[in-house]
Amino acid sequence: MSHADHKHHVASLPLLWATFFALVALTVLTVVMGTSDQIQLGWLDVWVVLFIATVKASLVALIFMHLAADKLFNGVVLVSALVFMGIFLGMCLMDSSNYLAEQQAYVEGQQALLGPTGS
């Protein structure tokens, strides 16, 4: 039985291994980025760490999950799920970030009311 005339894409072994090592390397990188006292990027930190995670996720999706060689529609399904997740998170964050100041003021007000024993 030959698979040559078969439509399905077969991933090559070296590619799978290379992907795996890239993923491990990125994991090490992210741990270093996230824990080392030398590399501190402040507010950027979380974005860098998330960026690395996204690179890793893309590797898994494109190669391990064959999206790179698969029907476009399957990729569209995944991407649209991510887009709607983005909408969900984005709108919720947009809302909650808006009353941050009020909330802080309220907490401080309550603490002032309670007096020095407050906390």
């Binding site: 698969d70 029907k71 529609f73 399957n74 399904v77 995944l78 649209s80 799920a81 991510l82 709607f84 997740m85 969900f88 998170l89 919720c92 964050l93 909650s96 970030s97 941050l100 909330q103």
Partner: peptide
């Protein structure tokens, strides 16, 4: 079957989205 499983995964992404959303809102605040 393949499309079915991809749609299922899309469903899973949105399922976890709720948790990521809670995470993001609490962490941001």
């Amino acid at each position: 079957g393949k499309l079915g499983i991809w749609l299922f995964l899309a469903q899973e992404v949105l399922f976890f989205a709720g948790l990521f959303c809670a995470y993001a809102v609490f962490r941001a605040n």
